[in-house]
């Protein structure tokens, strides 16, 4: 099967489980931000759960399909359509030669995942399809979908069709653990952090989510020596801005880390979009 992208969408990349073990060279882990959604998409088409998938952000691509096979779409509800009719979410869908897939408005969530049953013929670097981020554009491997791009998958017959009921309740409260510099923050500031809601700003991407509402002072007045960063780290800038770091974040940073979001809540971070409000609890 070949997918021909007539429109690339706002930001569509080919993601998998990412690359572990190169973080000491400054290489971020990368990979699908909503790993559960990636795994479900692959399960529905009979793939191993960490096979590549398309990660689709808010505005989806338009795809002309050549050849037949199975496709599943999971994660955010971005109004997927198949030949002008609603594309069933969280289900195995038989796709025929000439079918047309497109997306509409974002009903809930931020990132959808599209799987194709079979072997993806795509570039990998250090074992992963995940494009390296830079602040301007993604670097290698060349897996950021552009207008006119084509994607080849060697499909195989998958006899089952599955449909899974997935809860669509958005998570707005995130459970955290105390971060490494938690004790440097004044009790008032910590109180504010836990009792207030924060709005997700427009500066939200695969590297991190910047929150609009700042923490009041006094903030830790220290020049921190750069230290390792892990996904889910919540750091506070000298001006009080709160930034939640995701899988494409730089591997080192120098801002005090007030909290770390627990692993179980990381997938839900992927579904935050600008304008959403979030809170944190211990």
């Amino acid at each position: 099967m070949r997918l021909h992208f007539q429109k690339p969408g706002m930001f569509t990349t080919i993601q998998d489980a990412g690359r572990l073990g190169y973080q000491d060279f400054g290489v971020p882990i990368g990979g699908a931000l909503d790993r559960a959604a990636m795994q479900l998409a692959n399960l529905l088409v009979g793939n191993a759960v960490f096979e590549p998938v398309l990660e689709i952000t808010l505005l989806g691509p338009s795809i002309q399909v050549e050849g037949s096979g199975q496709i599943a779409i999971t994660g955010a509800h971005l109004s997927p359509m198949l030949n002008g009719l609603p594309f069933p979410m969280n289900a195995t869908v038989q796709i025929a030669n000439g079918d047309f897939i497109e997306f509409g408005i974002a009903v809930h969530g931020c990132r959808a995942y599209l799987s194709v049953g079979g072997e993806w013929r795509v570039e990998r670097w250090l074992g992963s399809t995940s494009p390296l981020p830079s602040m301007r554009e993604a670097l290698l491997p060349n897996n950021t979908i552009r207008k006119g791009a084509s994607l080849k998958v060697n499909t195989r017959p998958f006899p089952n069709t599955l449909k899974i009921e997935v809860e669509t309740q958005m998570k707005m409260n995130f459970q955290v653990m105390q971060g490494p510099e938690f004790d440097l923050f004044a009790p008032d500031v910590i109180g504010h952090f836990f009792s207030n809601k924060f709005k997700v700003s427009a500066a939200a991407n695969r590297m991190g989510v910047r929150l609009e509402d700042s923490l009041p002072g006094p903030l830790p007045n220290l020049e921190m020596i750069s230290s390792g960063i892990v996904p889910g780290t919540v750091q506070v800038t000298p001006s009080g801005q709160v930034i939640v770091l995701l899988a494409d974040a730089q591997t080192t940073g120098g801002y005090p880390r007030i909290a770390n979001i627990i692993s179980a809540d990381l997938d839900a971070l992927a579904q935050l979009k600008p304008g959403d409000t979030v809170g944190f609890s211990l």
Partner: peptide
Amino acid sequence: VRFVIPAYCSLTVGYDN
């Protein structure tokens, strides 16, 4: 043990809990 990030005067160790 999944990854290590040595820095100037700290070491981060990522693990599968």
